[in-house]
Simulated assay, not measured.
Amino acid sequence: MGSRTSPISQTVTIRRAVAQDAKRLTRLVRGSGAYRGKYAAAVAGYRVGPDYIEAHRAFVAVGADEHGGRVLGFYSLVLAPPELDLLFVADEAQGRGIGRLLVAHMQSEARAAGLNRLRVVSHIPAEDFYHRVGAVRTGTAFANPPAVPWDRPEFEFRIPPE
């Protein structure tokens, strides 16, 4: 396992995703370590297309390093019904606060859109992350075979006014 860079040693910018990001975001989803083994089927054919990026508020975290603007993670906010649809951080960027940064940005975007709560159906291995970033467990999203053959925890972010 490689060494992890501290959050301070790399500048991270969050910007709106554009159609040209689609292939990189798809690779990030399909290559996620959280979806190996029994979870692999859930993302095997998953595609984040330019149409998806246009239809939703998708944002990417980009690292300014020696490789130029590398995509370190992204999220997608759906306004109606209010939901955090996707949130992924590249395996090699985990543990650096990128996910926390994306959640804070998402909450700011949700607040600006007039939302005061936001649903999240979590991947089972991400449950602890959502607890740590302030989401409240509200129930269970039941299995939907064949796409998702297991129950998943359901959370809610409560978005306080500024």
Results as ranks from 00 to 15, higher is better:
residue 126 A to M: 09
residue 61 A to R: 01
residue 90 A to F: 09
residue 70 R to C: 02
residue 41 A to C: 11
residue 101 L to Y: 08
residue 40 A to E: 07
residue 121 V to L: 13
residue 116 N to W: 13
residue 130 Y to I: 08
residue 104 A to N: 13
residue 100 R to T: 12
residue 138 T to A: 10
residue 38 K to A: 12
residue 32 S to D: 09
residue 138 T to D: 13
residue 148 V to H: 12
residue 84 L to C: 12
residue 87 L to H: 05
residue 138 T to K: 13
residue 49 G to I: 06
residue 73 G to Y: 02
residue 148 V to R: 10
residue 81 P to L: 04
residue 63 G to S: 14
residue 117 R to N: 11
residue 120 V to I: 14
residue 37 G to S: 09
residue 119 R to S: 14
residue 50 P to I: 01
residue 62 V to S: 05
residue 64 A to T: 14
residue 126 A to I: 00
residue 110 A to N: 14
residue 78 V to R: 14
residue 43 V to K: 02
residue 63 G to E: 03
residue 60 V to P: 01
residue 129 F to K: 01
residue 60 V to E: 05
residue 104 A to P: 04
residue 113 A to G: 15
residue 101 L to R: 11
residue 89 V to E: 03
residue 119 R to L: 15
residue 141 A to F: 08
residue 148 V to A: 06
residue 134 G to L: 12
residue 146 P to Q: 14
residue 118 L to P: 13
residue 69 G to F: 08
residue 53 I to L: 08
residue 51 D to A: 10
residue 153 P to W: 13
residue 152 R to H: 02
residue 38 K to F: 00
residue 153 P to A: 14
residue 59 F to S: 12
residue 54 E to W: 08
residue 92 E to C: 12
residue 71 V to E: 05
residue 60 V to M: 11
residue 56 H to F: 11
residue 126 A to W: 00
residue 35 Y to R: 01
residue 56 H to M: 10
residue 105 H to I: 06
residue 113 A to W: 05
residue 135 A to G: 01
residue 59 F to C: 05
residue 63 G to V: 14
residue 46 Y to I: 05
residue 106 M to K: 01
residue 39 Y to S: 05
residue 66 E to W: 12
residue 76 S to K: 04
residue 32 S to H: 03
residue 47 R to I: 09
residue 116 N to D: 11
residue 91 D to V: 12
residue 116 N to P: 00
residue 76 S to D: 13
residue 102 L to F: 07
residue 65 D to I: 07
residue 99 G to K: 00
residue 135 A to I: 06
residue 42 A to R: 06
residue 55 A to D: 03
residue 50 P to R: 10
residue 122 S to F: 00
residue 78 V to W: 11
residue 35 Y to P: 00
residue 109 E to C: 13
residue 151 D to T: 15
residue 144 N to P: 04
residue 98 I to S: 03
residue 117 R to E: 14
residue 106 M to S: 06
residue 153 P to I: 11
residue 118 L to M: 13
residue 120 V to L: 00
residue 152 R to I: 03
residue 65 D to P: 02
residue 33 G to V: 01
residue 102 L to C: 10
residue 132 R to D: 10
residue 116 N to Q: 15
residue 44 A to E: 14
residue 101 L to A: 12
residue 131 H to A: 09
residue 32 S to E: 01
residue 107 Q to K: 11
residue 149 P to I: 07
residue 127 E to R: 06
residue 77 L to M: 03
residue 73 G to E: 13
residue 113 A to N: 07
residue 122 S to E: 02
residue 68 G to R: 12
residue 121 V to Y: 06
residue 80 A to F: 09
residue 80 A to K: 08
residue 142 F to Q: 13
